[in-house]
Amino acid sequence: MAYDRMESATYLASLLARGFSRQLQERGRKLGFAPGQFPVLAELWNEDGLTQRQLIDRLDAEQATIANTLARMERDGLITRRPHPTDRRTRQVFLTDRGRGLRDEAMTAARAADDALFVGFRRFERALMLEYMRMAIANSACAPADISAHRDAETDPGGEHGPDSPR
């Protein structure tokens, strides 16, 4: 039997991720950030002054990946790193004025990248697709805590999908 990669969820997820990355790259380049920098920016827009370890944990990323991303962001004037006030071995990551100023346009760019991927979807189809994606991620071995928490919050304990019924 031949292998049909178009029937593989992992292959399709990879294509989807590349498609989103391309969409965001086109828009982000004009604003001065790369797609890999967007998740770091988003975390710092939510809470400035995180440590590298906190970013690694929140983004479920490798230490080397975050270190390289932060170095490029610092070089590009998006962040600055300062010594932690109570832990001399740790440095906190802060947005520069330039990094903070990107927020609205970058969020608009990310929404536009999402919208480009969902052209032709009806609102409920988009919502279902997102829920199915969250469920697949939660079922995977690398589910970030925020995906699991989101899925748990949407569980319908008394309805059709009770705690003991298969979903």
Rank of each mutant, 00 (worst) to 15 (best):
L130M: 12
D97G: 14
A127W: 15
R75K: 15
L50V: 03
T69L: 13
S8Q: 08
I79W: 02
S140L: 04
A145M: 09
R29P: 01
D115N: 14
Q54H: 04
L78W: 02
F33P: 07
D114K: 08
A149C: 00
A141H: 12
T65K: 12
P39N: 06
R88D: 05
I66N: 06
A113I: 11
R126L: 09
H161Q: 05
A153Q: 09
G101F: 05
R91W: 02
T80S: 13
E160W: 11
R18N: 07
R151D: 02
A13I: 01
D115P: 01
L55W: 01
R100A: 07
R103D: 09
R75F: 10
R75G: 00
E125Y: 05
N46Q: 13
N46F: 03
E47V: 00
D146V: 09
T90H: 02
D97Q: 11
S14R: 05
R29W: 05
M133Y: 07
A17H: 03
S8R: 10
R100P: 00
C142Y: 15
E7I: 01
R5F: 13
E160S: 04
E74C: 04
R27G: 10
I79Q: 04
I79C: 04
A67Y: 14
R89T: 13
L59N: 08
R123W: 08
P166H: 12
M1Q: 10
T108I: 06
T108G: 07
M135I: 13
L24N: 06
G77E: 07
D76G: 00
R27Y: 04
T80Y: 01
R27C: 10
D146H: 15
R123T: 13
R27W: 03
P83A: 14
A143Y: 08
D114I: 13
R111Y: 07
A138H: 11
A64T: 14
T86Y: 03
L117A: 00
V119D: 12
D115F: 08
S148G: 11
D57H: 08
E160P: 01
S140A: 13
P166T: 07
N68I: 01
Y3P: 00
L55R: 03
M107N: 09
A110S: 15
W45K: 07
T69K: 09
M107I: 12
L41C: 06
L50H: 00
L102R: 06
G99Y: 11
E47M: 02
P85N: 04
D57Y: 12
Q25E: 15
E7V: 05
P163H: 07
G32Q: 03
A106T: 10
Q54Y: 01
L128G: 11
R126C: 01
S14A: 13
N139A: 12
G101D: 12
G120T: 08
R81I: 00
L12H: 00
V119G: 00
F20P: 05
L59P: 04
E125G: 15
G49W: 03
A34N: 07
E7S: 11
Q54T: 06
E62F: 03
G158I: 00
E131M: 12
F20A: 06
G32E: 07
G120Q: 09
R91S: 15
N46D: 13
E7T: 14
L78I: 02
R27A: 14
L117C: 03
H161F: 15
A110E: 14
L44W: 08
T86V: 09
